[in-house]
Design a protein around this nucleic acid. Structure first.
Lengths: 307, 307
DNA sequence: TACCTAGGATGAAACTGGCTCATGCCCTCA
DNA sequence: TGAGGGCATGAGCCAGTTTCATCCTAGGTA
């Protein structure tokens, strides 16, 4: 079996190193586990030697694998730099990039990604459109935004392209002394007698309401706060319970301020997508923003997985 | 058309830069001109911009093409280094590499290539087997050599693999005042009344005899010399005529010591191949020696072309 | 001016090589 | 021992590449 080394292989090795397993790396690369398995096998038979030890978790690189990994870490950024330069040269200079976000939490991961992006594309005018709209897609159509971060890739929208970002889990949060903290996970009914602390936004923009409580016909008492810290403060002091993405609350849980419980036996998983007008979807500086936020979130955020 | 950038494309761009035309680059890469044309077109439509200007000879790179060329020049050597390291790691350390050569002239291009190779594979014991044998292939079978440089890839030899090196032209050399210098090219008959100056080897190892004079039944007077300079000295002083590869005599012609004429209207073209036992053919350190001598000769030697 | 040649383009057909799908195997942990 | 996570494998499919056969163009030459 031939197949010389290609950039594709280097991408695979890099993903493998970061994810620690074939399946996770495959998800990150938008490929199947089988594809990576075949790919790796071909490479190994090409070199006549193993590149990784797969019987250990997370998988470990052999000396040869490590050498190729070094190559990948050196070469891929160079390729990315060149691609960026070429995009700049080819498409004239970039335009504005206004990002519409649906949820408060998005700021948490969007901010660092935006910083990184700004240093790569200094000439792009990058802005977040605040004012949380339930459905940001019309903004794209009207040309008032180039990109929207949304939950669920809703039914085929004309002229709008969806790119998967990542999947996260929303967890229920409560004081460690809260009576529900005794349960291993919470059901919709558990919320009916509680005070739910949320951001001041419509129910449709709250994962817990939209995907769990509203379908179950449950509508608990409310209390709202603008800031995540404020919500956690209220929860810690026993004024109610909340539901937030797991990555936002890591610190508070480690320190024992609050405890988290899965919502439903298997947890409440939510998916984020980037939506662009199909016109903007092939502008390199927009595609790169999506790719960058995705990979950065996947590596930085705990408890987040590829779609 | 999709097709992201791959190492293959970078190889193509590099070959293009060195050869100055699609067809020559294609030959060097063991591909067709059509393949490169398609490949380039796909790349250009991927970036939405031209990479090279093809209406000028030698072709010129656009700004975008140059950026990718910079990438290629940076990345490909890194990949080659890694491949070498991997080969070393994978196949244990390398063995001896004894090269059997058929012709004196081979030294001219073999020496610099060997120097370059030695710095890449210091642990390989690289030697030339002197004593010019007419048919070096048995040496491979008997394990007395790992590689043989030969003219023409003769009929399928069991267990021997041939790799094309390059094509060169043998030209007739004579004093500028020689009567044959008046002819634009020489025919076999022109040699019959002359003194032919050659290396002291069997006729079968002389391009002129084997491919031209012997078939025509012509066998001129002889005079032999061991060294190329000695042959040229004799030619310059009018003691006879000789036939040597065009690249060996560039200097002497420029300075007017001797003149060269094509042998036959279209010139006498010879082909060189590297032969290895099929066992050795997949040892990386041998494959690389072949690749290196080939590319180095193609770029350094004037009047040499890919096979 | 007509021809010739070298180099490039192009469309169709063939081939490969990658990917997915479906499935099976192995190991771990409850 | 049953379930689940993770990897391997073979078949089949599809797309990207290459080749083949031609055509086109420009520059040089008789």
């Amino acid at each position: 079996m031939p197949s010389a080394l290609e950039l594709r292989h280097l991408e695979t090795l890099l993903a493998l190193a970061e994810c620690g397993s074939l399946s996770k790396a495959a998800a990150r690369l938008f490929l199947t586990q089988s594809a990576l398995s075949h790919q790796l096998k071909a490479l190994e038979s090409h070199y006549g030697a193993a590149l990784v030890e797969k019987n250990v978790r997370p998988l470990r690189f052999t000396a040869i694998g490590q050498r190729l990994l070094v190559l990948a870490r050196s070469v891929l950024p160079q390729v990315a730099d060149a691609a960026r330069d070429v995009a700049r040269l080819a498409q004239g200079h970039a335009g504005p990039l206004r990002v519409a976000v649906q949820c408060h939490n998005c700021f948490d991961w969007l901010m660092p990604a935006m910083d990184a992006y700004r240093s790569l594309w200094p000439e792009v005018e990058l802005d977040i459109i605040s004012g949380f709209v339930v459905d940001p897609l019309p903004l794209l159509d009207r040309g008032e935004a180039e990109l929207a971060i949304i939950h669920d890739s809703q039914a085929a929208h004309p002229n709008v392209v969806f790119s998967p970002l990542f999947r996260y889990e929303s967890v229920a949060l409560m004081s460690p002394r809260h009576r529900l903290a005794a349960k291993p996970w919470l059901e919709a009914e558990d919320f009916s007698a509680e005070t739910l602390i949320t951001y001041p936004v419509p129910d449709d923009m709250l994962d817990l309401m939209k995907h769990c409580l509203t379908p179950a016909g449950i509508n608990p008492k409310r209390r709202t706060a603008e800031l995540t810290v404020a919500i956690l403060q209220l929860v810690a002091s026993g004024r109610g319970i909340a539901a937030l993405p797991s990555w936002t609350v890591g610190n508070y849980i480690e320190r024992g301020y609050v405890v988290s419980r899965p919502i439903g036996r298997t947890g409440l998983r939510c998916e984020l997508y980037a939506a662009t007008s199909s016109a903007g979807a092939d502008a390199a500086y927009i595609r790169e923003f999506i790719a960058l936020t995705r990979t950065q979130s996947l590596t930085e955020l705990a408890g987040v997985s590829a779609l």
